[in-house]
Design a binder for these strands. Structure first.
Lengths: 329, 329
DNA sequence: CTTTTTTACGCAACCGCTTGCGTATCTTGC
DNA sequence: GCAAGATACGCAAGCGGTTGCGTAAAAAAG
């Protein structure tokens, strides 16, 4: 059995309260006593029982992390950011992989709120407003990442996809392109729609006219990208550059271009979106928009800390992407 | 404040002990009382305080998960397997991303053993025997995944890389190849050495002579693979098939072959190792050896459960890979 | 050297749940 | 209808810490 505070107290010849105060750096302990206690603590490698601590102090120094899929490469970056920041602040993480199932989300959430965690970070996921309310989570320290519940004023961290698309457009325009094709997933999805808007905005700013024919809406996959590009090549005036609004789309696009025998970027430039690992693996390597997923995670922890302390100044934080230039433009 | 057991007890008009027993399905509670309690519990959504429970019962129903890098796509599969199985069994996970730093490993391990977790799963990582011993972990419920500490008889789960390489070799041999090149990372690394042995074994079994010239040892990366293949092409009798002992190596190899103007798989077949996502993204898609990472995670939890109960029958479990045939062979 | 203020420390209640043991109540058998 | 055994339940002592409050001792003030 591990050492308890009582043991330390007995060895030093003081009460448990004094030991507790000494360890936690609280006032009310004499210089010499404190040193004696701390020395013993070091020597015997005493570590307080976190459960007892949590029970007594109502603080667990643990954060609940809820996400739909831990194998998603974007989310792992978020997790890494969260873990690093949390660890710096002396917090630990309980991991809940929900697989997107509402049932699992609810079950984990109730567990988390049941005196297990000081706060919760909710990445993606499908839970809606009503359910959050029903669980009484709206006034629990909870931060949403990459997920917007408009009616709840919960602290939220998002990526500015609109801006990201605009940066992609700007990049191509700066390189002299006047006719830019957009290969994109279905616009019903919010992210895609935001990208679509950003694309338009970039054209507007540069006084280029928007041509709906240059936009192809496809399934967000490699084959989607492939077919999308073939479609664009059939136009009377095919574009000189493509914004493929997703890296997998971009891979398909690049493949289609190469199959068609065109040169990248000389005859057709391509920019992707997302900066997954595939962008460096294909040839030519892909210029893309890098999304600050890890920073999103770090920011989430910072926000959560504020939520725990009860003073979130600015509930909405929106992070900006960045252009990573490689060989395809 | 959440409901406590005392509240429930008061409502039903019994003592806390009875409530406790009713909830935990223990004997010593009358049929009617039990029902009354359970109804109230449902109605008010009472959930016991896990900290108090853990403190009193010395069981936390929590597992510690230690791994070097959560963004590694192999590890995430392991994590997924662990999470699913643990969740099935009513266990939760504390996540420790150590970045491979010993300091963090030790700090997390001591935390875990400090009444926080019922057991630990240690994936990869750099900690050596002595340190495990020093932490008194050799008799703590601990399972190693993808990491071998020979002198400690800790329950361990490994992948049979030797067998995997043999399967790769067999596959190529069955397709009629007699001269098989091996592009591999440095042989000092255990995994690579095992792959190397498996390759030889496959040749032996088929009565093919082993030619050291066909083996190139390179850095485990895309460029490593690229250069490795160029080297093989310079031989007087270049091989007709390549086993690239890693998917990234394989990507480089494929690139080099395509640059050289050869056809895959007609003139040169390629098989990779690992089945990361890249294998489906490159063209032609890569035949590869799939490693059962997720199963490794599930198995780890099963072993850990046995370790917690104190009866591990067979401490060493070795899982077999599988050939995934695609276009490159 | 006394009086007042400050500091150092102990006491004990509490956090919410578990569990061994004792007793009142209920069955069962004769 | 009563002794003996089984059953249902309560009591109270933990589990290992934290913390408000009271007091004795030390330091500062007069």
């Amino acid at each position: 059995m591990a050492l308890t505070m009582k043991d330390i107290a007995k060895m030093v010849g003081v009460s448990e309260s004094t030991v507790s105060r000494a360890i936690n750096g609280q006032p009310g302990v004499g210089q010499k006593t404190r040193e004696k206690i701390l020395t013993l603590v070091k020597e015997y490698q005493y570590q307080p029982n976190v459960l007892a601590q949590g029970l007594a102090s109502q603080k667990t120094h643990t954060l609940g992390l809820l996400l739909p899929d831990i194998t998603d490469p974007y989310f792992t970056q978020v997790v890494k950011g969260i873990e690093e920041r949390a660890s710096e602040l002396g917090y630990h993480l309980i991991l809940a992989n929900t697989g997107g199932s509402r049932e699992k989300e609810i079950s984990y959430l109730t567990l988390f709120t049941q005196n297990r965690c000081d706060g919760i970070i909710f990445v993606g996921g499908s839970l809606a407003e009503e359910e959050i309310l029903k669980l009484g989570l709206n006034k629990y320290p909870l931060v949403l990442v990459n997920k917007l519940l408009e009616e709840l004023a919960l602290p939220t961290l998002l990526l500015d996809h609109q801006q990201g698309a605009q940066m992609a457009g700007d990049h191509l325009i700066q390189l002299g392109h006047q006719s830019i094709g957009l290969v994109i997933g279905i616009l019903d999805e919010l992210t895609n729609f935001q990208l679509y808007e950003g694309y338009q905005e970039a054209l507007n700013k540069a006084d280029l006219t928007f041509d709906p024919n240059l936009v192809v809406e496809v399934e967000n996959s490699r084959t989607g990208g492939y077919n999308g590009l073939l479609h664009l090549l059939e136009l009377d005036n095919p574009p000189t550059a493509i914004f493929a609004a997703g890296d997998y789309l971009a891979v398909g696009v690049v493949e289609a271009i190469k199959t068609g025998g065109y040169l990248i970027p000389e005859e057709l430039a391509v920019i992707g979106y997302g900066d997954t690992m595939v962008t460096e693996i294909i040839h030519p390597s892909l210029t893309t928009i890098k999304l600050p997923w890890k920073a999103l995670g770090e920011g989430a922890v910072n926000q959560l800390m504020k939520a725990i302390e009860g003073n979130v100044e600015d509930p909405f934080i929106i992070l900006l992407p960045e252009v990573i230039r490689r060989q395809s433009t």
